[in-house]
Design a binder for these strands. Structure first.
Length: 445
RNA sequence: GUGGGCGUAGCUCAGCUGGUUAGAGCGAGGGACUGUGGAUCCCUAGGUCGCCGGUUCAAGUCCGGUCGCCCACCCCA
């Protein structure tokens, strides 16, 4: 063997159980976002670097040191997206979607890239499932969005707590910021070294420092909620009422600030306690100025992103492999033609089943009638619809059953001399070990 | 970017203060068992001991570097 090529640091193959978790998350996410009117969109992974500098913020760590940036062959400065909102907003503006739609709801699922040191729940290539809701000024939109987010997590059996805050708008935040900086400067020598740096670059981030002495200082700091303008205050009060009506439990955390510059008014986070340090599983908020700042019209918007890798970690041990599907087992090579016939008949029968559920065009087929009456057969056909496979090798019968068992099939179809001669199949339930026959002429219409 | 821990078979790990041919369990493949699986027993395959260099008569073991993994800081979903 020649020298092996390994993966690059922090970038992982998603296989096996984790892949199952990913699929379940994706499926659940799109099922529920669709229910709430979101359309799935497919956005570029590669964008101009400037997009993120201008939206995420040039003093954020994401932009300062975590972006994968490079020059392409046309000398364009490009970056792998570190998050999804900026690209969505760019697409919204560039395609002038606002001209033809009075409001727009998008959902997406895809990989993001940040050059960070890997740890539990943090990878350089990671996946986010996100929603963006454009042209939605009312606090009901915030409520609806949070309701959607909490439902997705509930459906996935993730126990998360919701924290909300309002970080003001361009009218009220500067005043708060000034007071905060004043206060923090008076305590500067007591702050940790990181916070002293934050004070210069991004003072709001001092508010969620984990250092205990910083926390004590923050406890006494001016509270953003006392500084909100009438509009922001009203928005926040209404949001809380909406959450109460929707019966979504939440905690107000006045020290909750988001790391990205574009947020205004509502911000929220769902946190779990089973995950270690990286415990935020879904987060988002309102970004009323971002569209304007990126050269579009003055349109309010909001959104959230869910950390797919982190949610997968949460639900990994909830996944059980259950028996599913059917494998056809011809005992010898000479029975393979018969097995192929069975394979074709059964897989086509699943199509007919689909149709019956919609239009009750049934009785046409004898086997369908039988199916409705015979519970055993019905359960079998449900599994046929889940999965049907032919074996890829011949061997001792014991081996074949062993294989069927290890691959978690629900049923095995036995094909040997007697079956071929009398034109039937023997169906074995691999869990109960029960067997029954199905004459094939029932399937041949 | 910083710090701590760790890299031996597909997986989980033994391998003493350096000493002959590198071990177990699980898993995989085969057999005992030629129309019926999960148990038991037997057999087999699979390792440049992450990689590079150094010390030594001798390195899986010691030293340096490097790559990767895990965890935390930081950051964020």
């Amino acid at each position: 063997m020649s020298s092996k090529i390994t993966k690059v640091k922090g970038i992982y193959d998603i296989l096996g159980k984790e892949a199952k978790a990913f699929s379940l998350i994706e499926e659940t996410f799109f099922k529920l976002t669709k229910l709430f009117g979101y359309e799935r969109v497919f956005l570029p992974i590669l964008e101009r670097e400037e997009l993120f500098v201008r939206s995420v913020g040039d003093t954020t760590d994401i932009v300062e040191k975590e972006m994968y940036t490079f020059e392409d062959k046309g000398k364009r400065k490009v970056a792998l997206r570190p998050e999804g909102t900026a690209g969505a907003v760019r697409a919204y503006i560039e395609n002038q979607v606002f001209l033809s739609e009075s409001y727009t709801k998008w959902s997406y699922f895809g990989e993001m890239f940040r050059y960070e040191n890997p740890q539990a729940g943090r990878r350089r290539q990671f996946y986010q499932a996100g929603c963006e809701y454009f042209n939605a000024p009312l606090p009901t939109a915030d409520g609806e969005l949070i309701y959607l987010a909490s439902w997705i997590l509930k459906e996935l059996r993730v126990n998360a707590e919701l924290y909300i805050n309002n970080i003001g708008c361009e009218k009220c935040r500067p005043r708060y910021k000034a007071y905060l900086i004043d206060y923090l400067f008076s305590k500067k020598e007591k702050l940790c070294s990181d916070c002293q740096k934050r004070l210069e670059r991004n003072p709001l981030r001092v508010l969620d420092c984990k250092n205990p002495t910083c926390r004590d200082i923050v406890e006494e700091a001016p509270n953003i909620l006392d500084f909100l303008c009438e509009e922001c205050k009203d928005h926040f009060e209404k949001l809380k009422e909406i959450l109460d009506i929707l019966k979504i439990p939440y905690k107000v955390d006045p020290f909750l600030v988001r790391g990205l510059d574009y947020y205004t008014k509502t911000v929220f986070e769902f946190k779990v306690n089973s995950l270690g340090a990286q415990n935020t599983v879904l987060a988002g908020g309102r970004y009323d100025n971002l569209i304007k700042e990126l050269g579009g019209p003055d349109i309010p918007a909001l959104g959230f992103a869910m950390g797919v890798d982190r949610v997968a970690l949460c639900i990994l041990n909830l996944l059980e492999d259950k028996r599913e599907g059917v494998i056809i087992l011809p005992f010898e090579e000479k029975y393979i033609p018969f097995a192929l016939k069975v394979f074709k008949l059964l897989s086509e029968a699943t199509n007919i089943l689909e149709k019956i559920e919609e239009e009750i065009d049934t009785k046409k087929f004898l086997f369908v009638k039988n199916l409705m009456e015979n519970e055993k057969l019905r359960n079998f056909m449900i599994e046929v619809r889940n999965r049907i496979e032919l074996p890829n090798k011949l061997g001792k019968i014991k081996k074949l059953f062993n294989l069927a068992d290890k691959k978690n099939f629900a049923y095995a179809i036995v094909i040997g001399e007697e079956e071929v001669e009398k034109n039937f199949i023997t169906i074995k339930n691999l869990e109960t070990r029960e067997q029954f026959n199905l004459p094939l002429n029932m399937l041949e219409v």
